[in-house]
């Protein structure tokens, strides 16, 4: 709850300082020669306009932020334009040989400037839990509250510039298994990730590139706690994704995410996936992927299927 309040306070502060507000309070002076049009030719502003182009809202990551499946993007989630608010909810299911990971949550995009998100993650050890001495069906739950701000650039429209859209963000994470994560060598069961993300649509060749540098203490996204007995403290990790747009409502791509190596008991490996995302309308999207999450908690070759549904506007 404390985190949610913090996130909201941060967002409120950012909205107040946002140049969007300044732009709106000071409309550009009309050119006297051209301002012959009466108010009757001015289309109204819809505050829930779904005013972005299809697919440009991206999908929801397993941490709840706007992005791909495992990589966060600089794009602000939802279809709300610079004058509007958009929102969405997601449910994601990842099935691996020895585990299941479920994520569900919701996010809003405010004026295409600020994104606030919440995700609940459930890392279900199933039968593996018994083998690890945790008990069959033992489940780590983690809440992730995210805030993201678009700092500069426009990934979609500034096609004559190299400058990508750049956003900064933070994710507050709290894992409910303090005793267990500390027993495996983590220092804490909660932590904050900070990231800077850059996204650029290369429209003339129909692909989208995203890179994110994340400063994090997390082990396996925080599901195995934060910090550790092998390495400790913040490290920079990399997230990248490359998506090819095949049509207005279909994209395919690859993602990569590196990880910290903090824990003596188990090495953490990079994650990757190959995905296809289908956007039949602005109100719903389906993403399916083949994921390779490497070794998790000594269980090797965690490769499987990723399925995600997002609904929103």
């Amino acid at each position: 709850m404390r985190y949610i309040a913090l996130g909201c306070a941060l967002a409120a502060a950012l909205v107040v300082q946002s140049p969007v507000a300044a732009e709106q309070s000071a409309p550009p002076a009309a050119d006297p020669k051209t301002s012959v049009a009466a108010d009757s030719t001015i289309a109204p502003i819809d505050r829930f306009d779904s005013g972005k182009l299809l697919a440009t809202g991206g999908v929801s990551t397993v941490e709840g932020s706007g992005g791909g499946g495992i990589a966060t993007w600089a794009l602000i989630t939802s279809y709300g334009s610079r004058d509007a608010i958009g929102a969405n909810a997601h449910a994601t299911y990842i099935t691996l040989p020895d585990f299941e990971l479920r994520s569900y949550g919701a996010a809003i995009g405010v004026f295409d400037r600020v994104e606030l998100s919440f995700a609940r993650q459930e890392f279900d050890t199933g039968n593996t839990g018994a083998r690890l001495g945790l008990g069959k069906g033992f489940t780590f739950k983690q809440d992730v509250v995210g805030a993201k701000v678009r700092v500069l650039g426009d990934a979609i429209y500034e096609q004559d510039r190299w400058l990508p859209q750049i956003s900064i963000g933070a994710q507050w994470k709290r894992n409910n298994q303090e005793a267990i994560v500390k027993a495996v060598g983590a220092k804490d069961n909660s932590g904050v990730d900070y990231y800077i993300a850059a996204s650029k649509l290369f429209l003339d060749s129909s692909f989208l590139l995203n890179t994110t540098i994340r400063f994090t203490e997390a082990n396996q996204m925080g599901l195995l706690g934060f910090g550790g007995n092998k390495n400790d403290g913040y490290h920079a990790t990399f997230e990248g994704s490359l998506a090819a747009l095949l049509s207005r409502n279909l994209a395919v791509g690859v993602e990569l995410r590196t990880q910290n190596d903090h824990l003596q008991f188990a090495k953490q490996e990079r994650w990757m996936d190959v995905f296809v995302a289908y956007f039949p309308t602005k109100n719903v999207s389906f993403t399916a992927a083949f994921v390779d999450l490497g070794t998790i908690a000594l269980q090797q070759r965690q490769r499987g299927g990723y399925f995600s549904l997002q609904v929103g506007f």
Partner: peptide
């Protein structure tokens, strides 16, 4: 200018 076009109008 006089049409006061928004982001969403442009997308439309």
């Amino acid at each position: 200018t006089a049409l006061k076009i928004t982001d969403a109008h442009f997308s439309a």
